[in-house]
Design a binder for these strands. Sequence first.
DNA 1: GTGATCTGAGACAGTAGTGTTGCAGTTAGG
DNA 2: CCTAACTGCAACACTACTGTCTCAGATCAC
Lengths: 189, 189
Amino acid sequence: MTTQRPLRADAERSVRAILEAAERVLSRDPAASMEQIAEAAGVARATVHRRFTTRQALLDAMATDVVRQLDALIDEARPETAPPLVALHRITAGVLRVKLAWPFAMAWSMDPTSPLAEGQARIATRCDALLLRAQADGHLPPNTDLPWTRRVYYALLGEAAHTPTDIPDPDTLATLVLNTLLHGVGPRT
Amino acid sequence: MTTQRPLRADAERSVRAILEAAERVLSRDPAASMEQIAEAAGVARATVHRRFTTRQALLDAMATDVVRQLDALIDEARPETAPPLVALHRITAGVLRVKLAWPFAMAWSMDPTSPLAEGQARIATRCDALLLRAQADGHLPPNTDLPWTRRVYYALLGEAAHTPTDIPDPDTLATLVLNTLLHGVGPRT
DNA sequence: GTGATCTGAGACAGTAGTGTTGCAGTTAGG
DNA sequence: CCTAACTGCAACACTACTGTCTCAGATCAC
């Protein structure tokens, strides 16, 4: 939808500026107009429509970009070969980085009404596979409810990314998320 | 804003129908128009505007109603006298009931951009007080991060309410939420 | 029953956003 | 350097929603 033949350098710059501006503006107000996005990007409204024929196309581009980042980040964590908890920590920190930089795109791309069911499902599957490895290593009980576990994991990620403190460290947050996921907030016996 | 002198019986009925229709429609599409809401309520669009001068007024009324339900439900759980975990279970089940019946109003009333900061804060305070009692009874460790605990609790409530299964039982869900909150998904040692 | 209140229907003006187009001027790239 | 690609600007048609108003008729409350 967005690319047909390679764009010229300045056009490529416009695309980036628009995507980043859209993130800034929409994370503050999801109903913001194309005009507000254009203004924040420092381009004319017509230019936004030239690069993204429709508002929906812009949102899709943002979501696609985020999903691509997530896939890449999971690859880098070596989820099939690294020790499960290590891979889990890497992925958690990586996802938090993306969430902190692209909160709107992230939320939208994982929304059930978003047109990225395929990407969502692929990521969920990879997540489940890693959780199964963790289970095999005894970090999860044999009778674990896998869907519930994944949903709790997602929810904790979302919550951690909303931390009010300034400039949170993704690795610290990842530790918090995984500790909470595995052991809850109750006393360690 | 909404009530000045007691409404006539039929007007009261319209108000209820509109509120319930708004919940149905907006939980499917948060951007739905007043016309769609009116149609779902079985009244004319003008009637919606007569009862709620503005779209915002309608949303506020929904949120206010939900906050009132939450306060009542917390009262009934006797959070200051009942054993902390018992009160917590009652409240959890109650909140889940409200969340299942009023998902949109609930989300909107707890949204940071919603104009109900006061109610949100009061409920958070009551929640914290109960968590402190649980801590005093040894159900939470002494060094507990209370805000994080509360946010995890909220997140788990939200996740449990999105359970895809049909007609989930609030008490079963409450047990799941509290077990996960206190012990996580890892193996019980 | 009677008057006050509420409703549906329809029309109205006003606002705001979307997506398109044409054109003159700028910029990138071979 | 010269062409093709890109941009800003301004205008345009279009759609959709909001909020208001009027009025005739239904419904409630006393």
